[in-house]
């Protein structure tokens, strides 16, 4: 199989480049991450990338393959056009090869206060929540923070420091939607901002790329309609 992989060595002083690899590999049933590991183990130990769970739940290995943001570990090799071009997630700083600097992404995540705020005395047992109320959280809490959505969003490309991006906004809404949370107003106050929220123009790249099948655009839409309702 033929690969073209983005390489950047921060210690060399050299500009980033694309390196070609020819890997003798039976692709049947295998994923992009399997190929990256095989290249590292047998051809080139210096090729660097993140990986952990290798089954699409930890969010370590978001990369851009043939122009699409994907998780390397759940993307089948079969059916990919060769040479397979693998690049780091777009718009974030590159630390080395396929490893990007996620600091900005995590900062936006922390900014939405991604934790339950409830100042009532803690009950003896669980706080009740009906299955219907709980169902409001489905499609929100499953986010794995891989960054595929945010780094595919043109609004984020233009204003990475000011626009929170789909992943952080999805988590913002996850707590607004939770019947146990009491900070909806405070959360909406923070989000009511021309950049943080309103740079989303419904381009929907995030929906297309999310490896978990989540829909950040819909969540952003719900935040916007809550803001409208509140203003009336």
């Amino acid at each position: 199989m033929r690969f073209r992989i983005y390489r950047y060595d921060p210690e060399s002083g050299a500009a980033p480049r694309v390196q070609e690899y020819e890997l003798d590999f039976d692709a049947k049933g295998k994923k992009v991450l399997d190929a990256l590991i095989a290249i590292k183990d047998t051809l080139d130990e210096t090729l660097s990338f993140r990986r952990s769970c290798r089954e699409g739940v930890c969010g370590s290995d978001g990369v851009n393959v043939n122009g699409n943001n994907v998780l390397a570990c759940v993307t089948p090799l079969e059916g990919l056009k060769q040479p397979i071009e693998i690049r780091p997630l777009p718009r974030l700083g590159v630390i080395r090869d396929l490893i990007v600097d996620m600091a900005q992404f995590y900062q936006h995540y922390r900014a939405v206060k991604p934790y339950l705020i409830n100042l009532d005395p803690e009950p003896e047992n669980e706080r009740p929540q009906s299955p219907q109320q709980r169902a409001e959280l489905d499609g929100l809490w499953e986010c794995i923070l891989c960054g595929c959505c945010t780094t595919s969003c043109p609004s984020f490309w233009w204003n990475p420091d000011k626009f929170l991006g789909p992943a952080a906004l999805l988590q913002g809404y996850r707590f607004i939607a939770d019947t146990r949370d009491q900070a909806t107003d405070e959360r909406l106050d923070f989000l009511e901002d021309p950049y943080r929220l309103f740079r989303c123009h419904g381009i929907m790249n995030c929906v297309e790329v999310c490896p978990k099948g989540l829909n950040p655009t819909a969540a952003i839409g719900k935040i916007k309609s809550l803001l409208v309702k509140r203003a009336l």
């Binding site: 047992n125 669980e126 706080r127 709980r134």
Partner: peptide
């Protein structure tokens, strides 16, 4: 487990609202 629920863990629920 109750402590985790109070922290915000999104447990699935029974019809009566319990975990």
């Amino acid at each position: 487990v109750y402590e985790l629920e109070h922290m915000g863990l999104p447990f699935s629920r029974l019809e009566n609202g319990k975990i």
